[in-house]
Nucleic acid binder design. Sequence first.
RNA 1: UCCCUAGUAGCUCAGUUGGUUAGAGCGGCGGACUGUUAAUCCGUAGGUCGUAGGUUCAAGUCCUACCUGGGGAGCCA
Length: 478
Amino acid sequence: MARLKIKEILKSGKAGDEVVAKGWVRTKRGSKNVNFIALNDGSTIHNLQIVVDVESFDEALIREINTGASLAVTGTLVESAGSGQNIELNAKEIELLGKADPEKFPIQPKKHSLEFLRENAHLRFRTNTFGAVFRIRHAMAFAIHKYFNEKGFNYLHTPIITASDAEGAGQMFRVSTLDAKNPPLTEEGTIDYSQDFFGRPTNLTVSGQLEGELGALALGEIYTFGPTFRAENSNTTRHLAEFWMIEPEMAFYDLKDNMDLAEEFLKSCIKYALDNCMDDLKFLADRLEQEEKNKPQDQRSMPLIEKLQFVLDNDFIRLTYTEAIDILKNSKPYKKNQFQFPVEWGIDLQSEHERYLVEKHFKCPVILTDYPKDIKAFYMKQNDDNKTVRAMDVLFPQIGEIIGGSQREEDLVKLETRMNEMNIPVDEMWWYLDTRRFGSVVHSGFGLGFERFILFVTGMGNIRDVIAFPRTPKNAEF
RNA sequence: UCCCUAGUAGCUCAGUUGGUUAGAGCGGCGGACUGUUAAUCCGUAGGUCGUAGGUUCAAGUCCUACCUGGGGAGCCA
C-alpha cells in the first residue's frame, strides 16, 4: 500500500479508503479505551487525527508514541465522530519509526517563545509557525522564478566569491586559504596575497549587480537569486550577515520601467501567496491577531491577509526625494520637533522619516526616486540637474526599504568621472566599464531582500525567524 | 558599534523596602476517565537563581565587569 501525504489525505481521502500515513506526532491524548494522535508530515499545517483503539495495540508501543516521535500508520479512513476534522484514520497497524524521549525532546505541545525556538532552530520546523513560514518561503522562491521566467528573464548565477571590493555595499567577509596564524608576508611586511588561492584578495559577494549588468547587456533581461554576505555588525530585526537577494537587471529599461517592474513583481508574488498559501497565511494571521491583542489599539497593524490584499489593490505612491523632504518639513512631527534627526535636503532619510511617509502620511507602499547623488552609489544614472541620481527605493510599512535600485549610468565619461570623485579604482573595474565602451545602452535594475519580503508576507517580526539558520554577529550555530 | 532591557525548574513567568526551608502555570512521570481537539481531574519529581568578583551579620534581590538573549538606533536588502 502506498504512503499518502497528509495534505492529500485531508483533501481527497474518502471514508473506507485504506491508507498509509507517515509523520511526526504533535500530541497524543485520550482515555482508557481510545487514544488520539495528531500526526503531521509537513505537507500541510493541518494534522491527521489517528484514532487508536488501545486494546488492539501493545501497551509498550503506545507508551512510546510521544510528542516528536515518528510513525507509519496503516488503517482505514472514517468520517470523524468528533468535531474539528472531517476525516480521521482508524489505525490498524502502527510502526514506531523513531522514538522521541519526552523528557528530552524540547518542543512541547504548548506555545513556545520565538527566542527559545531560535535556539532550537534544528527542531523548530516541527512547529506550526515555522512549518507555515518555511512553506511560504518556498512558495515565494518559486513565485519569483515563475514570474521572471514568464517575463523572459534569464536566471544568471553570478559569483559568490569576488575579487572586486568596489561595490561599496558594505563590509565583506574575506575568503582565503592562507594560514591565519602565519600568513606569508611581502618584503614590506604586508600579507602576500599572491600566494593565496586566487593569487589576490577575495571576498564573499555583497551583490551580484555589477556582474548582473554584464549579463543584461547581452541577454536583455536577467535576474540573480542567491546568497549575499555582509560583515556589518548589525544587530536588528531586519539584518542578516548571510541573506538571499533577488537582483533583476534589464537592458533598455529606464527608471519608470524599473519602477513598473518592481511593483508588478512584488504584487505578482503576493498574489501567488494569497492564491496558494491560504492555510498557512490564515494560521499566521490568527497568531498575529493573538499577539496584537496585547498591544494598545492605536499600535495595532492591519490584519495580515487584509494587508496583503491592500498592497495588491493599490498603486504604490511614487514621488521624488525632493517632494518627500517637502512633505516631511510640513509634517506635524517635524513642526512639533518630534523627529530625532534633522530633515534637510541632502541628508539620507532616517527610518523615522521613511516610517512617517509610509505608515502615517500615505498609508501605502511608497517608491522614492531621484535622491541626492552624494548619498547614493557611483553607478547610478546622473540627472541633468547635476544634483540627483535616478535611484529608487521601495518602502514598505514595518519593513522599511524592501527594494533599492536605479537606472544605471551608461555614459562612460560621466561614469568614470564619478568613480574618480568617489575614489573607486577605475583600473580594476575595466571589465565593468567595457560595457559602456562597447554598445552601451540605457539599463536599470534593483535588489530585493528576500527575507525582508518574507517578513512582510508572513507578518513575522524578526528576520531571524524567516531564514532556516540565521547568521548574525556572534551567531553561526547549526 | 551605541542606548534601553532581561537572564530564577524542561518551557513561560512570579519572587515585597536585602531577612528562615525559592513559588505558580504548562510540560514530564504515576494514576483516573467510553471520542479527545494545546483534553480534563488527582498525585508526584524537578532549581549551583547567566558567569566572576565585591558590599553586608545576611544577596535571587544592591554594586562592578564580562557573557548571552530581546527591543530601539546606525549601516543597509
